[in-house]
Design a protein around this nucleic acid. Structure first.
Lengths: 342, 342
DNA sequence: CTGAAAGCGCTAACAT
DNA sequence: ATGTTAGCGCTTTCAG
């Protein structure tokens, strides 16, 4: 452990220090076995002394293996991706793989996403997990039969690559059923554009569909992105018979709750509100949001398993793997006013 | 863009396809200039057709440059790190560097952190940013004079490496002063152990100190980690003259708020509460937390600048760079009951 | 059990 | 302006 002169020590330096050949060092460092213990010790000591860390570039080049998985994350700021990334990292490590991620800031643009993809391919990661709907099929087409791809967190509706994602159908329906069972008969559903998020759009459509089947009047509130719900809330408030608001995410719900608060509308006394996601700070019992928890842990872990499976398993069919989440009873849904007898 | 047989195309394949030498391909791919336009086009076309992406390993090996910064993140699940990572990613890209991060799950253990560090060094990143107090000085000592290191998000109190972090002194004092100015005279400060987080401990100590100087009675509530504030809240409630609770983070504040809610204690009518962090969902006006916003954007960006500075600038002194945040007026601090005349 | 030697895919002189 | 050649640091035969 002494200060080496700026240059990073190479296998050669270690070999010299230990008085063996570089092949020996290589074997020891990779724990190949079949080496006399004495040499092992000598090499390890020398490596430690020099602070030697084998170059992943050199070894990767020579061995054509990197034992690394790459991840493209849409937006590091969103807790959703943080949780997903965490889950994947954990699973990858368990399975003996390293994981590197390149993430976007704000919203990773399509260009950024493409660049991230190229960077990861340049690193010769052995498998790729994409957590961003920003990447279109064309973007990974060139690499698709070269390296295993999996999408995590969003369904790939084009069925080009396998995907693992929250069962939006289940989530949307569970929430809708719950709202219905409480007796609400006119409901506003906040819906994001499909282009903004397939998942959020999907859960919204599931809500709308079931509510309709249950004979409930649905007012669809089309959102631009995820912000600016103020005017939409005003609009809903013009319809006094609407007693429940269903949001596409907890974050949107938070905004809605804020707008309601500013207008002195109490939740759940005056209106009921539901969210979607159920993780991170917004899942705190302090807020008591009625929501649906996405199984991020499982999504991440299965995504990793899926890439690894194709990695050593040959080619499997493209799979779409919805994972059911968990309904969270909160304190934001109650009987509608008119049933409440007030 | 046709399906290549599993093997990734090399510079050689492209050269053959374009009918030029590999040096030509190398030059074109790196945009070296001084090449006849016709050849440029031919090479680019061939590369596109084959889906060629230069191997970062091979080029890194040959050029001894990776144009990559490495980041060790403590816990991807915490929004704090997500935001920091986002800011760094952005700045790195602006400055023409790639950034790869290896993040922990839950709490990155010391061992994991060491491994992450080694992995990044193995990749021969040109600079390293550590966002985890879990790494002790010994861990990076071997590499410290080999590659630029910077800590982001926490001060390196050992003064071994440069660090960029939130000015906890300022934050703690601003909040304490605010609470004092409202007329509170007996205050509880929730304090995490120094080993858990230097930053959170630091801001807590700053609060305690200033409150003391202002003649306020301070009750220090020692926390184990960041959880389990229930019993602590009970304890504080035994002291009816304590009218304000100061928390080391918005997350802790959220827990405290929840415990208070369960006990039917209203904020800010019954007691005032302050937090710390001011980003992400918890910064929503819906919650209206009175807090101090950490300048994560600036911390991340300056951390990147700092590494890059040492990268091409030779050796500078070790710097500790506190960055001031912003006080956030919320709705969780009000006049103490006894002043309120109730 | 160990060393020598031939690459891995690319860059960087060096020629031409 | 373009081709040739010698490595970069490591793994992997292949001999011994």
């Amino acid at each position: 452990m002494e200060a080496a002169e700026s240059r990073q020590p190479t296998i050669f330096d270690v070999a010299a220090e230990a008085g063996v050949s570089k092949s020996m060092v290589s074997r020891v460092m990779r724990g190949e076995g079949g080496v006399r213990q004495e040499k092992v010790d000598r090499v390890l000591a020398a490596a430690e002394k020099l602070g030697y860390v084998p170059s992943a570039m050199a070894s990767g080049l020579a061995s054509k293996r990197t034992k690394t998985l790459g991840v493209v994350v849409r937006n590091a700021k969103l807790p959703f991706y943080g949780f997903l990334q965490g889950a994947m990292q954990k699973r990858a490590r368990e399975r003996g793989y390293q994981m590197v991620s390149i993430s976007g800031v704000e919203e990773l643009s399509a260009d950024d996403a493409r660049q991230a993809l190229r960077d990861l391919i340049a690193l010769r990661v052995e498998g790729l997990i994409v957590c961003s709907a920003m990447l279109a099929v064309e973007d990974f087409m060139p690499f698709i039969d070269r390296i295993p791809f999996v999408m995590a967190g969003h369904e790939d509706t084009t069925r080009t690559v396998s995907s693992v994602f929250c069962d939006e159908e289940d989530g949307g329906r569970r929430l809708a059923q719950y709202v219905h069972d409480f007796g609400h008969r006119e409901v506003a559903v906040f819906l994001v554009p499909r282009e903004y998020s397939v998942s959020q759009y999907g859960r919204g459509m599931a809500m709308i569909e079931l509510l309709g089947q249950l004979g409930i009047r649905v007012k669809v509130m089309d959102m631009k992105g995820a912000e600016e719900v103020g005017t939409l809330v005003d609009e809903v408030l013009c319809h006094p018979r609407i007693t429940a608001y269903m949001c596409p995410s907890d974050v949107v719900m938070l905004n809605v709750m804020d707008e309601l608060r500013r207008r002195d509308v109490s939740v759940p006394q005056d209106v009921s509100v539901t969210g979607y996601d159920g993780f991170g700070p917004l899942a705190s019992p302090y807020l008591g949001f009625t929501t649906y928890r996405q199984p991020l842990e499982e999504i991440g872990s299965r995504a990793v398993d899926l890439v690894l499976e194709r990695l050593d398993g040959g080619d499997h069919a493209v799979e779409a793997l919805p994972v059911k989440g968990e309904f969270i009873h909160g304190r934001t849904v109650a009987l509608p006013r008119w049933k409440d007898g007030r």
